[in-house]
Design a protein around this nucleic acid. Structure first.
Lengths: 237, 237
DNA sequence: CCATGTGAATGCCTTCACAGCC
DNA sequence: GGCTGTGAAGGCATTCACATGG
């Protein structure tokens, strides 16, 4: 790939863009949330300092992140909240609607199906699946639970183009394979296993056990350094 | 801080340790899971190649990560599954038991309370809280739901030293402040807001909306490059 | 003047290649 | 001989400092 087959940015100031570093993409979603709060409060302008504060980052970082989108601020003034909101949304792909299928109607699947943060911004729950015959056919929030045996058919019929996997680890890879076979390329997995997928499929993982373990690591270190300083204090006596 | 007051590693081959890079800590939890699977299958030894495969990383990375723990492999042979499991567990702080309080007994809180992956490894649910009078006093999985008004008392009585916050964004900061005041220093938050805490408090955030938005970004890019290549193909005709 | 946008500097993480050891 | 452990190299991400432009 040479400089020449770079996408159509040349005469196209609109979707002005090269690829955004992954770390920045993650933070853009946070900025978006901060901006939505400001929007709700009726705030029209904000400086990088104010936005950074709200997002919990330092202002130079926020400015660098925003610079990947192009130049949407006004020097000496700040950013127009509405414009910036629209710009980030567009760039993250939130102006089109995404149809999400939830696989697994256990506790977690139900919680997700009822999660309002879902529908509020560009994500629509398109279908819910489970393998348990005793709950297939019953409804959750107005959506009938489908049989995972009908995965491909129902995914296509409902137009689902994203999937949230909320199933036990032992069946996750099997379902994942079926999703890939059905043409799904975006998967958010809550299953505590490493999913093997072809390179064109994006998988993101949310893992409570991992997060708790990371907290445990830091908590233990804090304990140790506490003990250390006690020991030191005792020696110093 | 000079080299001299480095912790007690000198004559202490046991907890051989300097601080592990954050990125490595995160992966160690994954290795641990892979090791537990192997253990369950009765496998006694594994090479860095095999472990890396199971964890979805490249072998040099796994070896570097493990090197932060010290030297627990055998050259020419590989790693003893049991020994490595114990070593990682100890270093992550999983040999002591952590008592977790869940704040918020909505759909998500209930799902978490019932999550088996919790209790299986060093984490015990110590208490559950909610602010809704209509469910306070009822039980979930044998645990009575406490009033968030009694937060501090109950946290101390139950010996909780970690908290999972599963409450709506608008009340998260308020509860977080109360947790900090009660002496909690490890918080896993599912609330879609940036929590402000003093530096000695560790907060980790799990955020489904963010994860979906990141997927949307990549999905949109995939769409675009697909369109691009179609256009190019058409032009080439 | 003031706050944005950005090249340059720094630091962290990952990858590589191979020395060291069983 | 084979696989671990690790210094060195390379690639990202973050921070800094300031030039730029309303």
């Amino acid at each position: 790939m040479t400089t020449q087959d770079l996408p159509s940015t040349a005469g196209n100031p609109e979707s002005s863009g090269r690829t955004i570093p992954p770390a920045s993409v993650a933070r853009l979603t946070i900025y978006l949330r901060a901006l939505n709060s400001l929007l709700a409060e009726g705030v029209e302008r904000a400086s990088s300092e104010e936005l950074a504060e709200a997002a919990g980052v330092k202002s130079p970082m926020l400015r660098k992140d925003l610079s990947y989108l192009g130049s949407y601020g006004t020097r000496g003034v700040g950013y127009d909240v509405q414009l910036l909101t629209r710009t980030i949304s567009a760039r993250l792909g939130l102006t089109q609607e995404w149809r999400v299928a939830i696989i697994g109607a256990g506790n977690l699947g139900r919680a997700l199906a009822g999660y309002s943060g879902f529908t509020t911004r560009g994500f629509e729950v398109a279908a819910i699946f489970d393998a348990d015959p005793s709950i297939i056919g019953t409804e959750i929030g107005g959506l009938k639970i489908h049989n995972t045996a009908d995965l491909e058919t129902v995914l296509h019929r409902t137009g689902a183009n994203m999937v949230v996997l909320a199933v036990p680890g032992r069946v996750a890879q099997d379902l994942c394979d079926k999703l890939v076979a059905a043409g799904i390329t975006s998967i958010l997995s809550f299953a505590p296993v490493v999913l093997q997928v072809p390179p064109h499929v994006q998988v993101r993982k949310v893992d409570m056990a991992t997060e708790l373990q990371i907290l445990a690591y830091h908590a233990q270190r804090a304990q140790e350094s506490e003990l250390d300083s006690e020991t030191r204090a005792r020696k110093a006596q």
